[in-house]
Design a protein around this nucleic acid. Structure first.
Lengths: 159, 159
DNA sequence: CAAGATTGAACCGTCAATCTTA
DNA sequence: TAAGATTGACGGTTCAATCTTG
């Protein structure tokens, strides 16, 4: 371990290219949402999509955190801001009084439904329009492998 | 355009998987840097790598911004914080008095050289260890295509 | 004490406005 | 007026501490 195993030229190129995409894409997507007249950020959108797809249109906070792969405190702050704006609401969990349910409101549902079509168009314009079927399959394979790797590498330390 | 073209099931899976990686990876990399005893954030590290590789170990601010694909103001704030910590220093540009050169300091160089080996190890452990040669090639191809797409899609609007 | 969740402080990133020089 | 760069205010994210219930 005294001599680190540096990245090969190919790996380095792939890595820097990936970092670039990672930086550019959230910018483009957030701007796409704003440009379409939506008041939702990419984060707002992600939360609302999850809630809108959940049975009963509500989820436990921790369940939501795991689905989004977010830290608890980040989600907690996000939910407070969204609740203040009327996009979600809280209700107590009768089974486990420590916990809370988060429910999407009618306003939240309307907002995500209005934002979705232009957002999908932005995702296409900035991402999938550049890719063919093979690319999509490769990407899914790669991302799944990396996710698995990170989650097992983190093991206990994470969360 | 009244009926949006939704993502196919395959696209949706690839997209969500990609978003997950995008969220997980910066977390893991920042924690890796901290865990190795470095005081550098991932952003600090990126700036220092660019500067350390530049001829004369200095760059113009805008040059650096383009290399990192960062917004000017983000870089400006970052450089101020790094200058306060003694990692970089400024010097005036004699040719163009509007501009400034950013130079890496001896401390900055030492910090990035100390952080690099464990950081590479973290990148391997969380990313490349999950990928084979074909994956790396596929990833580079995909990221290059997406970057090109975003940059031309943005066109004038961006910046 | 552990688990679900929230809070506050500090730090980071974005946008719009500003300043200086070309 | 435009280009290179900085600033201030605002909102978002992290970390550590806290609170409540199991």
């Amino acid at each position: 371990m005294s001599e680190p195993q540096w990245l090969t030229a190919d790996e380095q190129q792939a890595w820097r290219s990936f970092l670039r995409v990672q930086g550019l894409l959230p910018l483009a997507l957030n701007r796409g949402l704003q440009a379409s007249g939506s008041d939702l950020s990419l984060s707002d959108f992600g939360v609302l999509v999850m809630l809108s797809e959940a049975p009963g249109r509500r989820m436990r906070v921790l369940e939501l955190a795991r689905a989004l792969q977010w830290e608890k405190s980040r989600l907690s702050h996000q939910l407070r801001r969204m609740a203040e704006r009327g996009l979600v609401s809280r209700s107590n969990c009768s089974e486990d009084k420590r916990g809370a349910f988060i429910e999407i409101t009618a306003d939240g549902l309307a907002a995500v439904e209005a934002a979705a079509p232009p957002h999908v168009a932005t995702v296409r314009a900035n991402f999938f329009d550049a890719l063919d079927e093979q690319d999509v399959a490769d990407l899914a394979r790669i991302c799944a492998a990396v996710t698995k790797q990170i989650e097992q590498d983190c093991g206990e330390p994470c969360e």
